[in-house]
């Protein structure tokens, strides 16, 4: 299975999903004009990945800002990770936020509550 690599822009996040290592990274800003167009390939990739996922999967999410429709797609991504978890795989979601970004930290906590996935909320220093 191919890896999924999408370069980030001012409006879309960088996606770096590696099927062999099981490391799935999303970082940057997510305010696409057409969220479906952007996230559909991501969800399709995850649908395929769920059947061949390695024993350990780490999702690294480091988002600076995202719009409402992106928040729905993040839920969809977490839903697919939940399916992988139910298949008996080891899943960890690493949710990164900048030290002074209280809102993004709380958002990570909300996703943790709703998804039922193991989360690690990690603060990163402002540069």
């Amino acid at each position: 299975m191919d890896n999924l690599k999408i370069e980030g822009t001012k409006q879309t996040p960088e996606i770096d999903f590696n099927s062999s290592t099981g490391i799935l990274s999303i970082s940057g800003r997510s305010i696409p004009e057409n969220t479906f167009e952007f996230f559909n390939p991501v969800l399709l990739w995850l649908d395929e990945f769920s059947s061949i996922a390695p024993e350990k999967v780490i999702a690294k999410i480091n988002l600076e800002y995202f719009n409402t429709s992106s928040s729905k797609y993040i839920l969809e991504i977490l839903k697919r990770l939940r399916i992988i978890l139910k298949d008996g795989k080891d899943i960890l979601v690493e949710w990164y936020y900048e030290e002074d970004d209280e809102e993004m930290m709380e958002t990570g906590e909300d996703y943790e509550d709703v998804s039922g996935l193991p989360f690690e909320i990690i603060s990163i220093d402002d540069e």
């Binding site: 800002y65 409402t68 928040s71 809102e103 709380e106 909300d110 996703y111």
Partner: peptide, 12 residues
């Protein structure tokens, strides 16, 4: 959850 997150990000 979406409403809560959306409101929070609006605050940000």
């Amino acid at each position: 959850i979406i409403t809560k997150i959306s409101d929070r990000l609006q605050k940000k």
